[in-house]
Design a protein around this nucleic acid. Structure first.
Length: 580
DNA sequence: GCCGTTTTCGGCCCGACTGTTTTCAGTCG
């Protein structure tokens, strides 16, 4: 059983215990362990075998044994027992806004409700409102929550959330009395998927701002409206005509409170808890309004001052995931993170030669408009006929056009590449002689996703070990919120890539963002050279590389670890040397 | 269930908002 499966089960156990009214701290121990496992580096089975599981913070003797059982046998009697004690439908009910374990349990105990459908009928029959602790408003909120759930999924991609957040900020921007306004939460930390939009404002007069917020265009429902905090549901356009609904929260504080509130609402929650605990050890109290001791409070003009007051270097939002950043910041060893401006070009872009929407010339022009120095073309290879993959003849035709364009460019260059299919047995879709003539080769899996893990791993390791392969494309093939990645032992892929000097792509297309930040962090640790590619199929998609920079930053990646921060001359030199 | 510079027990971050209460529990982040 792999990391994700173990993490899911631990998290579910925590929730099942909550539904049974267990001690919240015990429940939390399972949620924490779930997080620790899903974010840990390395191969879980290896760590279990090495007996190093309990070295992970948040995993003690009990959880070590349970996780070991899960990993080695594939199931856990304790988990099965808990599942028997709680009807499955109660877990669904927790997805409703404002409905927590206590209320869900009461609905089950007193009305026998154990599904969303039954809950809807009970609300419509006015049976919920009569329960102790419930009322007409709660019943109405549950109905609204059910409607919200049926209209959308739980999370949306960052590229869908950002425009909605921007629309809200623009709408608030001209409100008088705003001193500072900032996006917080997981959007500020640049997670690949987002649940809520969090906006923070500093002002001396919150009321009119609140009023503006809940009446902004796109707001479809007001969840709450208080003196300093309001919560709404907002509809936005996902960019392809599809409507996306999201929660959006606004908090208004004074300007003196702003840095503390900004830190607090940026999260993540576990990072905040660690920061508060750290403050406590120094006889200080940290909350969203300030940092104070028994006699006086510490003035902070920005977040950096808060970290400094607690003996830490400034921790960028992307690193605030409670994966060791406090310890490293204390020792002054935080990485100097990659910046979007460090990227000088990208290597995985499609044109009308295969399945792209723009011509070679149009893509080159768009790349230059973005300030890039070079653009690598990587159209599909011959066997991927659904994507109009190029035959060797068409490859030569494309090269001739690239040569022609390059002859005209000043300070810009197109590199000749291919996104060459990795065939089911791990061989490549073009012969070695043709591959040798490309400037570089991106090797990717596009077919036979269902191979068992050993076969898929062997397939990708073989491709990564091929001397003509420059970089591996979208390592797991996942599509965010749509399709899980194929089963592959990423640890083995990283080791092969490091051994053969093959790069691994951070595919920056916001539907993929594959590999993810945890993988990126691990790849870096194992000495794999990274490259950030937009997988652009249209001119406006070249700028997607910025989402890849976000992933890299979350993975603690520095400029020197990313190939496409090099100049055109440096890139050409490295690629020429690899071809030998 | 975890954890320990207050260390094997007794804590575990903490405040806003809502709704149903009549002083607070539940939920959320």
């Amino acid at each position: 059983m792999d990391k994700e499966q173990v993490a899911l089960i631990l998290d579910e156990i925590g929730t099942l215990l909550e539904l049974q009214g267990e001690n919240p701290f015990r429940c939390n121990a399972y949620h924490n362990a779930s997080r620790a496992i899903s974010q840990m580096e390395g191969n879980l089975a290896e760590i279990v075998t090495a007996g190093k599981l309990a070295e992970i913070p948040g995993i003690g003797d009990t959880l070590r044994d349970k996780i070991t059982t899960l990993v080695t046998t594939g199931h856990l009697p304790f988990y099965e027992e808990q599942r028997k004690k709680v009807p499955a439908g109660l877990l669904d009910m927790l997805r409703i806004q404002g409905l927590g374990p206590k209320k869900a349990r009461a609905l089950y105990d007193q009305l026998g409700i154990e599904s969303l459908d039954a809950l809807k009928i009970a609300c419509e029959d006015n049976r919920v409102a009569t329960l102790k602790g419930f009322g007409a408003k709660t019943q109405q909120k549950i109905l609204e929550g059910l409607a919200f759930l049926s209209q959308m999924g739980e999370r949306v991609r960052i590229d869908q959330a950002l425009p909605i957040a921007q629309q809200l900020i623009d709408g608030l921007g001209n409100c008088p009395g705003i001193k500072r306004i900032e996006l917080c939460g997981s959007l500020r930390r640049r997670k690949d998927t987002i649940k809520d939009i969090d906006i923070l404002i500093s002002s001396d007069d919150a009321a009119p701002i609140m009023e503006r917020f809940v009446t902004l265009p796109g707001v479809t429902q007001i969840i709450g409206q208080g003196d300093t905090k309001s919560s709404v549901i907002v509809a936005g356009n996902s960019g392809r005509g599809r409507r996306v609904l999201m929660n959006a929260d606004l908090r208004v504080v004074t300007d003196a409170q702003f840095p503390f509130a900004l830190h607090y609402f940026t999260g993540c929650k576990e990072h905040n808890i660690a920061m508060r605990a750290r403050a406590q050890k120094r006889d200080l109290k940290l909350n969203e309004y300030g940092l104070s001791g028994p006699t006086k409070s510490v003035k902070c003009k920005d977040e950096a001052d808060i970290f400094k007051a607690l003996g830490l270097d400034y921790i960028p939002p992307e690193l605030r995931e409670q994966t060791g950043e406090l310890d490293v910041a204390e020792k002054h060893h935080l990485p100097k993170l990659l910046e979007a401006d460090d990227i000088r070009g990208v290597f995985h872009c499609h044109t009308t030669y295969s399945d792209g929407h723009a011509t070679l010339a149009e893509m080159a022009e768009a790349a230059q408009a973005l300030g890039l120095e070079y653009l690598g073309i990587g159209d599909h290879s011959q066997s991927l006929t659904v994507a109009n993959g190029l035959t060797p003849e068409r490859v030569h035709k494309q090269w001739a056009e690239i040569d022609k364009l390059n002859a005209k460019f000043k300070g810009f260059r197109l590199f000749k590449g291919t996104e060459c299919d990795i065939l089911p047995d791990g061989s490549l879709d073009f012969d070695d002689d043709l591959l040798a003539e490309f400037d570089y080769v991106v090797a990717s899996v596009h077919t036979h996703f269902g191979l068992a893990e050993p076969e898929m791993t062997a397939r990708i390791v073989r491709a990564v070990s091929h001397p003509r392969v420059t970089m591996l494309g979208h390592m797991t093939g996942r599509l965010l919120l749509k399709r899980d990645g194929y089963k592959v032992d990423t640890e083995a892929v990283f080791k092969a890539a490091a051994e053969h000097g093959t790069m691994i792509e951070i595919n920056a297309h916001p539907m993929r963002l594959d590999m993810d930040w945890i993988h990126a962090k691990r790849a870096k640790a194992l000495g794999v050279q990274l490259v950030i590619n937009p997988d652009a199929h249209a001119t406006e998609e070249i700028a997607y590389y910025r989402y890849g920079v976000d992933v890299a930053r979350r993975g603690w990646v520095e400029k020197k670890e990313v190939f496409n921060t090099k100049t055109t001359a440096q890139v050409a030199k490295v690629l020429a040397a690899r071809g030998k």
